[in-house]
Design a protein around this nucleic acid. Sequence first.
DNA 1: AAGCGAACCTGGCTGC
DNA 2: TGCAGCCAGGTTCGCT
Length: 278
Amino acid sequence: MLGERFASVEQRRPDLRFPLPERFAERLTGRRVEALSRRAKYLIADLDDGQALVMHLGMSGRFVVEAPGTPPTEPGAYYNEIGRHLVHDHVVFHLGSGARVTYNDVRRFGFMDLVPRAGLESSRHFAGMGIEPLGNELSGELLAKLFSGKIAPLKAALLDQRLIAGLGNIYVCEALFRAGLHPEAEAGSLATPAGKPREKARLLAQIIREVLEEAVAAGGSTLRDFAHADGSLGYFQHRFRVYDREGEPCVTPGCGHLVKRLVQSGRSTFYCERCQRR
DNA sequence: AAGCGAACCTGGCTGC
DNA sequence: TGCAGCCAGGTTCGCT
């Protein structure tokens, strides 16, 4: 997409999670993509008219990139060769080069929006958003400060995008396990260790970074249908230590306790009650 | 104000 | 085989 123009855009339904912007396809047609970036779980394409195309994949969204000359899928076909449900191809970007970028999203929890690039940080999607977990700001000191006084469970605080923006359910479970911290511990307890000052916060901050870097290097996690834009899959799911491993033995040498599952604010948490302490 | 459950939507899997 | 129930990578809304 970078440097390309949108020759045309097909919008096949009026909405994803939210209504698509007014005259969406029309406003994109002829525009050139000048930059691509990411903030938290949002993708941002800067356009040559000062607008930004903001995109979020939700739970099941994916982009598929097809090279110039790839024949269009057969009209009326339900699945393509890799089992993708074509009825869930909602937006198709036809690029000047002839390549196609298709947004497919079974559950339609994803969305797209067009907003002025200037002041993007204070626009409705980004205002109040927390720090980047891979940015320089994340430190034990800041983590302790962010969680100070919070009685919400550690798990919920880590998922709270207003504090740290970009951690999801899988990586929070994995980070808590590696840090040996109990998901139900009060978030504020990280900030108030009477003895070793903020040792837990320092360790957790370091481990969050490690887990994310390792997951990115492994290409992310393919649970059911996640794939990169070129169709390749992620491999981090093979390195899960607790996520989706309920009832399996804890991987800590000599532990042997079974991984437990509990529900916190509507999301599954997987943890080892022996290795993860409050 | 913070924290929590429900809602948004479809499909896959399990168990009866 | 069929059907009900549960579960899923995320965010937002509304209630207490």
